Simulated assay, not measured.
Amino acid sequence: MAKQSNQKAKLLYLQKFLMEDTDAEHGITIAELTEKLAAVGIAAERKSLYDDIEVLRSIGMNIETIRGRANSYKLVSRTLAPQDVVKAGKALKETGTAGADGIITLLCSLLSKYDAETVKTALAAVPKKAKAAAAAKAEPPAEPEAAKAAEPVNMQDAETVELKCAAELQDDVMAYLGPTAQVVKTKGSNVVISGQAVCGEAFYLQLIRWGSGVKLSAPSERRKEFVKYCKKIISQYK
Rank of each mutant, 00 (worst) to 15 (best):
V76E: 04
A81M: 12
L80G: 10
S58M: 08
I66E: 15
M61S: 06
R78H: 10
M61F: 11
N62S: 14
D84A: 14
S77C: 09
T95V: 02
N62G: 05
A70S: 14
G96V: 07
I66L: 14
M61V: 02
Y73K: 04
V76S: 03
I66Y: 10
V86T: 12
M61P: 06
T95I: 00
G60W: 02
K87M: 07
I66Q: 15
I63H: 08
A98Q: 11
I59N: 07
G68A: 08
R78C: 13
I66M: 13
V76W: 06
P82S: 06
I59M: 14
A91R: 01
A88H: 05
G68T: 00
L75V: 05
I66V: 15
N71K: 10
T95K: 10
I59W: 09
V85L: 11
E94L: 12
L92Q: 02
Y73Q: 07
T97F: 01
S77I: 02
G60F: 05
Y73S: 01
R69D: 12
G89R: 10
R67E: 15
A91C: 03
T97E: 01
A81R: 13
V76P: 04
V85I: 15
T65S: 09
I66W: 08
G96C: 04
A88I: 15
Y73M: 04
A98S: 09
K74I: 05
R78I: 08
G96E: 03
K93R: 13
N62Y: 11
K93E: 01
D84R: 11
P82A: 09
G60T: 04
T95W: 00
R69A: 10
N62V: 15
E94K: 13
A81N: 09
R78L: 13
G96A: 04
I63S: 03
T65I: 11
G68E: 07
L80T: 07
R78T: 05
G89S: 07
V86G: 02
A91S: 12
I66C: 14
Y73E: 04
S58C: 06
K93C: 00
Y73I: 02
E94G: 00
A88G: 07
L75Q: 09
I66R: 15
T97H: 01
G89D: 05
T79S: 13
S77N: 14
A91M: 05
T97M: 04
A98P: 07
A70F: 13
L80S: 08
Q83I: 09
G60E: 06
A91Q: 03
A70G: 11
K74F: 03
G68R: 08
R69L: 12
S77H: 14
T65N: 12
L92S: 02
G60S: 10
S72E: 14
